[in-house]
């Protein structure tokens, strides 16, 4: 039922608060638009002032390489958050799936088919989560946690709970090689990011994703296949983390079932710090990656400064809380974005 007064009130307050938001405080405006760029710049300046190693090619290649693996997951996770799917907690399982299968299947079917099969199977896990979330209507947290736990269990049982080692050193060399001085793994990450950005911002599927996250019932009433769109976000994330896991496995030439632990939180942190709303309906891949860059640089600076691990965790935790609080505040001021 459309409530007339709600409508009216929203009309007046939205406009006025928006005026206040835009016209009244250029500082808030600047922070909401360019806050992350400023923060990244600040970390860069601080890092180069305090550590002689920070501003070296070697350090940046390190940062980029460690960013690439989680970055691929971030691209997928962006879709999950934008579609209003909260988070995908099955990432550790799908990464393990990718890492273990890409190594374990090598002797059986060869490196390239193993790589492809690993990603496909991870995608299948995502499809199961997606179907449960989109079509059955199970809460995404519960569904992905459940599917993730089961998949991890199966993977562990399949390899007998031991570490799987690579048998084809050429694949490791390929992943670790460089093109124009840039590690191949970083180039793969950039390619995934560009494709992800294109899909989210330029394709009809991306527009559907944003619309579903913004107002699921309105999207449904606009003939958007919302169930498929929701499910799709989880398939995309699973394929991304499968790829990420496979690359991780090839890089390390060994994979344990718990190889992906923690990646889900790193990815969610990056996306949220990038200013993508946990409520869905808003966000882009470049923003998420900016969040990732900031978090990675900050971590790097903290490591170079010798900040202890618990303190690092504390800082990252504060960062997430701050980003979410800012999202809520901006939503209120912007009139329910």
């Amino acid at each position: 039922m459309t409530d007339v007064p709600i409508q009216m009130r929203q009309d007046t307050t939205q406009d006025t608060t928006n005026e206040r938001f835009r016209g009244g405080s250029p500082l808030v405006d600047l922070l909401s638009r360019g806050g992350l760029a400023i923060a990244i710049l600040a970390v860069l300046v601080y890092g180069s002032l305090t550590s002689p190693f920070f501003f070296t090619t070697g350090n940046f290649v390190n940062v980029l390489t460690s960013m690439a693996i989680v970055g691929i997951v971030v691209v997928g996770m962006t879709f999950v958050l934008v579609v209003g799917g909260l988070a995908d907690l099955s990432v550790p399982a799908t990464i393990a799936c990718g890492a273990i299968l890409s190594l374990a299947l090598q002797p059986v079917i060869g490196p390239v088919p193993a790589f492809a099969a690993a990603i496909a199977l991870a995608g299948l896990c995502g499809l199961i989560s997606g179907l449960l979330i989109g079509y059955v209507g199970i809460n995404p947290i519960i569904a992905t946690l459940g599917v993730g736990t089961i998949v991890l269990g199966i993977v562990q049982a399949a390899v007998g709970g031991v570490i799987v080692y690579g048998t084809n050193p050429d694949t490791a060399a390929l992943v670790k090689s460089r093109l124009f001085g840039i590690p191949v793994i970083v180039l793969i990450f950039l390619a995934v990011a560009i494709i992800g950005h294109f899909v989210l911002s330029r394709s009809y599927w991306g527009r559907w994703t944003v619309a579903t996250g913004g107002n699921c019932s309105a999207a449904e009433a606009s003939a958007v296949p919302v169930r498929a769109v929701k499910a799709g976000a989880f398939v995309i994330t699973a394929i991304c983390s499968g790829l990420s896991g496979a690359l991780l496995g090839l890089t390390l030439q060994s994979a344990r079932p718990l190889v992906g632990t923690g990646y889900e939180f790193s990815a969610i942190t990056a996306v949220v710090v990038g200013g993508i709303s946990i409520m869905g309906g808003f966000g882009s891949v470049p923003r998420a990656i900016a969040g990732l860059v900031f978090v990675q640089l900050l971590t790097n600076v903290m490591v170079l400064q010798g900040v202890r691990t618990p303190v690092q965790g504390f800082v990252l935790g504060l960062l997430i809380a701050g980003a979410v609080a800012l999202d809520v505040a901006l939503r209120k001021r912007g009139g329910g974005a």
């Binding site: 039922m1 459309t2 709600i6 409508q7 309105a218 808003f282 974005a337």
Partner: peptide
């Protein structure tokens, strides 16, 4: 009927 809930995606 319910424009806010079913008619529009307000953020777009």
């Amino acid at each position: 009927e319910d424009r806010k809930d079913e008619g529009i995606v307000p953020s777009l």
